[in-house]
Computed example of a mutant assay.
Amino acid sequence: MAHGDITHIDIPVTDMAKAAEFYSGLFGWQIAEMPGFEGYPMWQAPNQISGGGLAPRDDGFTQPRSYVEVDSIDETVAKAKEAGATVAREKSEISPTSWWAVIIDPDGNAIGLYEGTTDASGS
């Protein structure tokens, strides 16, 4: 993926098993927990490109959230803040080679940011 591409979509759910059954049956998504990400089943669309996760719903996460790949979360957050965004979640580590954060755009939309790679080889 390149800078600016949507790389991941999280869907908030209250019942992981029920949600996995619903989305796999409805759209043919492959849904499975990955090692190191237990309790966060990942989904992949039949095109083998689109994907994301089923994440626990909570007061701060009630609607699906898209993640955009960026070269630098720090630089993107600074630029977003200059343009009127706020930070909902500071940069956090996913793995030793990847990070995420969430900004709120001037219209109140939550947009996830993703930097790095989750591939074990670091590529």
Rank of each mutant, 00 (worst) to 15 (best):
H3W: 04
G84Q: 03
D15A: 10
G60S: 08
F22I: 14
A88L: 14
R89Q: 15
E69L: 11
T117G: 04
G60L: 04
F27G: 01
A83M: 13
N109P: 00
E69C: 10
D59A: 15
P12V: 08
V87K: 07
A20K: 13
W43M: 05
G25F: 06
Q44K: 07
W43F: 14
W99F: 14
E82N: 09
I6T: 14
E82Y: 02
T86Q: 14
R57C: 01
G112D: 00
Y114H: 13
T86R: 14
P56V: 05
S123R: 13
Q30R: 15
G122N: 03
Y67D: 06
W100D: 05
E38F: 04
W43I: 00
A2W: 02
N109L: 12
Y23P: 08
S92H: 08
D119Y: 06
F27Y: 15
I94E: 03
K81I: 14
I104Q: 04
H3K: 09
Q63M: 14
E33K: 04
G108S: 04
M34E: 15
E75D: 15
A2M: 08
M42Q: 09
G122E: 07
I94W: 00
D105R: 01
K91P: 01
G4E: 04
D59W: 02
I6C: 10
F22T: 11
L26P: 00
W29D: 06
D10H: 00
S50W: 09
F22E: 07
L54Q: 00
S92E: 10
A19I: 07
S50D: 10
Q48F: 06
G51I: 01
I111C: 04
D74Q: 14
P106M: 04
D71C: 08
G60A: 06
G39S: 02
I49A: 07
I6K: 06
I49Y: 07
V13I: 15
W99S: 05
W29N: 08
W29K: 02
K91W: 01
G60W: 00
T86K: 12
Q63Y: 07
N47F: 02
A110D: 06
D105F: 02
S121N: 14
V87M: 07
I94H: 01
V87W: 01
S50V: 00
I9C: 15
Y67N: 10
A85E: 03
M34F: 11
E93D: 12
L26G: 01
I49T: 13
A120E: 13
G28I: 09
D5V: 01
K18R: 15
S50L: 09
T76N: 09
P41S: 06
M16G: 07
Y67G: 05
Y114C: 02
F61V: 04
R89V: 13
I31V: 07
G122D: 05
I9L: 15
Q30Y: 09
A88H: 11
E93H: 02
V87R: 06
I31P: 01
A78V: 10
E90Q: 14
S66N: 14
V68W: 02
L113W: 04
D15S: 13
A19G: 11
E75Y: 06
Q44E: 12
D10Y: 05
A20Y: 08
G39D: 01
T86C: 07
D59G: 14
G36K: 03
A45M: 03
T86N: 03
M42T: 09
I11M: 11
W99E: 00
N109T: 15
P64C: 13
V77G: 10
I73T: 10
P35F: 09
W100I: 12
